[in-house]
Design a protein around this nucleic acid. Structure first.
Length: 812
DNA sequence: AGCACGCCGACT
DNA sequence: GTCGGCGTGCTC
């Protein structure tokens, strides 16, 4: 039986452990200490047996009492296996220098070379381990993470079940660890011997003059500099060093060339805009939260074009006034020169972090931020780790965006991490979006977040009109992908010299089974997921639970026998569009054509300049573009996103349609949107067509409730991949039984699904299976996985790997 | 991940 | 009898 979901040995007021957590998680059972014993305890949900365990663990056997001297110890973790933590003795000579957050070199096992590790904690040891070894070397003079960030690392390591060493490596850019763009410089100082006039007087003239110049300078100089001012060669200076008249002082410094690059080039300064009533109201709520000195989450729900950015900026100005800094997270795609310029013109000192930065620049910006001179950091998800010393506010723009979840280990969500960081520092977290994630929306309903509404556009521009085209209506259908009504609208817009955006959400691998006559989709009775058609064997499979049936030859709802399996590519659409509108200049934007860096910007500036009339592409054109001459947006097939085998499919569809609709109606000429669909009555599509988020959220929450999908419950996913299909599946099966055992011994309430083939069955030559775990309590879920995988070893010969994804954002 | 230990087969 | 195959286990 489960007694309590909060761990008894945790301080309950600790902000990172505030219960209930957000979005949808409970406190980490332990993040303060993570020695072996602590890990044992934390994997036990049952409080009474924990106390029992302590009886045995805290009393050392008598023969170890001799080793009980109080020694200085450091807990060290590694980014490579074995990840630790291991305890090392701190030699007396290092005792005052080692701080948590520094890197060290330590001996490990029978290795010849010492290994680099991270210090998570220094402590006074009582029960010394039987084979305690010494720290060999300290690599940093300053910790790379302050105490609060070390705590964040340990929390992330626990929550995402990733080795702490790996989390450190994620937090601290490799360029910082490698000291990119720096060089060791040797400075010269007069030594005590140089004070002895008699000795100095006995030196040869050149050496004497050089030394007198160095003394007169009154500051350390490089031998280069000294040779210039003293008008001599290196010779005399080398002699002075040899004879001991000068001391050497080695310092690591930034190379000069990069150190000016960050500066704003245009020097333009923008003043604060006059706020609309909505904006003023929103701002006062945010500043109120700032002044309260509490960790609070504010969801800023503002329609596209309502001016959220101006609210962020003025809130940050408020923070800056008090000498504190802010972090602004933006989706990868919207880190454009425009976004950057906007912040740079409003603040004296901005650090923009982006993916094209060189290692030296990245390192330089990191140092600037840590020095405290930066007021605002703008960047993608990793900017949540910016080492801002007096952080006062974190803003996440477009908080619903998928790019905030990292898809490699540690698979963290920047919103979840930002929440943990903000709450631990007692500062506000502002989440801004036109289409809140269900997680954030639910948080406002349960009181974990406060809702701020901005329902109208700046200048009171109307929202664009959204027209649904029912593809089931025979008269509107054509042989191609563009219906008659859409064709007419495109032609008309082009005739009026307007620009057109056509959105195709191609996710080719998902072959959902949909009836073209009535729109019916074949779904799994247990998971509510659309089944996916597999050509070989004519089977239809659920990617969550492996439920399988024979693909029905005709529609189960209306008995129509021309059932089809979705799928249309941008290339094919481009051909059709060019044939239909031969006079239009068409550009295509998708991951295939946008592979080269800069091509993105190139196409967009051509579109902005009006050289392109019709822009065709995937999701990437749905976000953030602001072109006043776009009078028509067409969504080729809204169902592609809608009937995707993912419980977030409806949410994605709503977001997609709403965001793409926001690309039009930004000028004086208004704008319209046409959405083609087989399911015009679907709540997500209906709500999007009316620009009614709350209508959507209400309906969607009921759907999520049926199966306890997030945000009502938690989900985790374990992906198992290997070269041999049978072996991979066998290991997935053994992991399943371990999970079941762990769940039952813990008495945890967790539903385990699979192993099932994920939508992407084979990736880079490896077969994949996945296990899905669901629970209303994130702790139960986490503990079950922790226990099941604790000593789970896969033999090398099997060549199978597994990955744990906590709060997965997709099921591919 | 290394690195050594150990337990079975083919060689001088 | 030894050299070496790689399966197994440990690293504070």
């Amino acid at each position: 039986m489960l007694t309590d979901s909060t761990s008894p040995h945790l301080p309950n007021d600790s902000p990172l452990t505030m219960s209930p957590g957000f979005p949808n998680s409970d406190p980490p059972p332990d993040f303060g200490s993570h020695s072996d014993q602590a890990a044992d305890k934390s994997s036990n949900l049952n409080a009474p047996s924990q106390q029992q365990g302590e009886l045995f663990e805290t009393a050392p056997p008598p023969w170890e009492l001799a080793a009980q001297d109080d020694v200085a110890l450091a807990s060290i973790v590694f980014s490579e296996a074995p990840h630790g933590p291991y305890d090392y003795r701190i030699p007396d000579s290092m005792r005052d220098d080692l701080v948590a957050g520094m890197r060290v070199k330590v001996p490990l096992g029978r290795r010849k070379k010492p290994i680099i590790g991270w210090c998570t904690e220094t402590k006074q040891g009582k029960a010394a381990h039987r084979s305690m070894r010494d720290i060999a070397e300290i690599l940093d003079t300053e910790p790379l993470c302050d105490a609060a960030l070390v705590r964040l690392v340990l929390w992330m390591s626990h929550y995402y079940q990733a080795p702490a060493g790996q989390v450190f490596d994620t937090l601290i850019p490799s360029s910082v660890r490698a000291n990119a763009g720096t060089r060791e410089k040797t400075y010269l100082l007069p030594s005590p011997m140089a004070k002895d006039d008699e000795l100095v007087g006995s030196l040869p003239t050149k050496q004497q003059t050089a030394l007198r110049f160095l003394i007169a300078a009154g500051r350390p100089m490089t031998s280069q500099q000294l040779s210039v001012v003293a008008e001599c060669t290196q010779g005399p200076i080398t002699q002075l060093r040899k004879k001991g008249f000068v001391q050497e002082n080695v310092r690591r410094e930034m190379n000069t060339p990069t150190s000016t690059r960050w500066q704003v080039d245009d020097g333009e300064v923008e003043v604060a805009h006059t706020l609309t009533d909505d904006q003023a109201q929103a701002l006062s709520q945010v500043t109120g939260a700032l002044d309260s000195g509490k960790g609070r989450t504010l969801l800023l729900h503002g329609v596209t074009g309502s001016g959220k950015t101006e609210v962020y900026i003025q809130a940050i100005e408020h923070v800056v006034k008090f000498g504190r800094g802010a972090i602004v997270l933006v989706p990868e795609i919207s880190l454009t020169p425009q976004t950057r310029g906007r912040f740079e013109r409003r603040f004296q000192s901005v650090a923009v972090l982006h993916s094209q930065m060189t290692p030296a620049e990245r390192h330089f910006q990191w140092q600037r931020i840590r020095s405290g001179e930066v007021q605002v950091v703008v960047g993608p998800r990793s900017a949540v780790f910016a080492p801002m010393p007096h952080l006062g506010l974190i803003v996440i723009d477009e908080e619903h965006d998928g790019s905030f979840k990292q898809d490699t280990q540690p698979r963290y969500h920047a919103r979840r991490v930002a929440y943990a960081r903000a709450m631990s520092l007692n500062i506000p977290l502002v989440l801004g979006t036109a289409t809140p994630s269900m997680e954030s929306w639910h948080a406002t309903a349960t009181g974990r977040a406060e809702l701020i509404k901005m329902p109208s556009r700046v200048g009171n521009r109307p929202m664009p009109d959204v027209q649904l085209v029912d593809l089931r209506v025979r008269d509107d259908r054509t042989a191609g992908a563009i219906s008659r009504p859409l064709h007419t609208a495109v032609q008309q817009t082009l005739n009026e010299n307007g620009q057109v955006i056509l959105l195709l959400n191609r996710r080719g691998f998902a072959t959902t089974i949909q009836c073209p006559a009535c729109g019916y989709v074949v779904a799994c009775p247990d998971c509510d997921m659309p089944l996916t058609h597999h050509r070989d064997g004519g089977k239809a499979v659920c990617h969550y639970c492996d439920y399988t049936i024979a693909t029905p030859p005709w529609c189960p709802a209306c008995r129509f026998d021309g059932i089809r399996y979705g799928g249309l590519g941008t290339q094919k659409l481009e051909v059709e569009v060019k044939a239909r509108f031969p006079d239009a200049v068409v550009a295509r934007m998708d991951s295939d054509t946008m592979r080269r860096p800069g091509s993105h910007q190139k196409v967009l500036s051509a579109f902005r300049a009006g050289k392109v009339n019709l822009l065709l592409g995937t999701q990437m054109i749905a976000k953030g573009l602001d072109f006043p001459n776009v009078l028509l947006v067409g969504v080729i097939n809204a169902d592609g996103a809608l009937h995707f085998p993912d419980f977030r499919a409806a949410e994605r569809t709503f977001q997609l349609v709403t965001q793409v609709a926001g690309r039009t109606g930004r000028g004086d000429r208004g704008g319209r949107v046409i959405v083609q669909t087989y399911s015009p009555e679907h709540p997500a599509i209906q709500a999007a067509s009316r620009h009614d988020y709350e209508l959507f959220a209400k309906g969607e929450m009921i759907n999520r409730m049926k199966f306890n999908y997030p945000p009502l419950g938690s989900v985790a996913r374990i992906i198992i991949r290997g070269v041999i299909e049978e072996v991979t599946e066998a290991i997935a099966d053994s992991l399943l039984s371990r999970l079941e055992v762990a769940r039952d011994t813990l008495g945890a309430e967790v539903r385990i699904l699979g192993p099932a083939p994920p939508p992407i069955t084979k990736l880079r030559g490896k077969y994949r299976f996945h296990l899905l775990l669901q629970s209303v309590d994130a702790n139960h879920l986490g503990e079950t996985i922790r226990r099941a995988t604790k000593d789970f070893k896969i033999a090398d010969k099997d060549d199978v790997q597994y990955v744990i994804d906590i709060d997965p954002m997709d099921m591919l």
